[in-house]
């Protein structure tokens, strides 16, 4: 089981790395700016009618918050697995 999980995890990591390697000079923006381009292509006179109540002041703050979100989730998953692993192992 452990070996299978390690293999699966390696495949996931490769799926992340391969695009970086294959598309070496792409922007990897995921940018919302590009979305606007596509929508304006479809309907040139569309104006966004609402903007975010609060925006992270910079890209750094934004990644901080995304990292925080991932850390909270990952922290709980680790706690969960640790709890149940020790429960199983200490069972008489």
């Amino acid at each position: 089981m452990r070996r299978k999980n390690i293999i699966l995890f390696i495949i996931v990591i490769m799926l992340v790395i391969i695009p970086l390697w294959v598309k070496g000079n792409a922007e990897f923006s995921g940018a919302d700016g590009q979305a606007k381009v596509v929508i304006t292509q479809m309907q040139p006179d569309y104006k966004p009618w609402f903007s975010s109540l609060w925006k992270p002041p910079s890209g750094e703050i934004e990644s901080l918050l995304f990292a925080l979100q991932a850390a909270i989730g990952a922290g709980f998953i680790g706690y969960f697995l640790g709890c149940f692993k020790s429960k199983k192992e200490t069972k008489p």
């Binding site: 992340v16 391969i18 695009p19 970086l20 294959v22 598309k23 792409a26 922007e27 990897f28 923006s29 995921g30 940018a31 590009q34 995304f66 990292a67 979100q69 991932a70 909270i72 989730g73 990952a74 709980f76 998953i77 969960f80």
Partner: peptide, 19 residues
């Protein structure tokens, strides 16, 4: 809940050259 929380925080590069 935690699983969704983690996965939707991870912007991952894709083969289309975007994330």
């Amino acid at each position: 809940g935690a699983f969704t929380f983690v996965l939707s925080a991870l912007k991952i590069p894709s083969v289309t050259g975007s994330c």
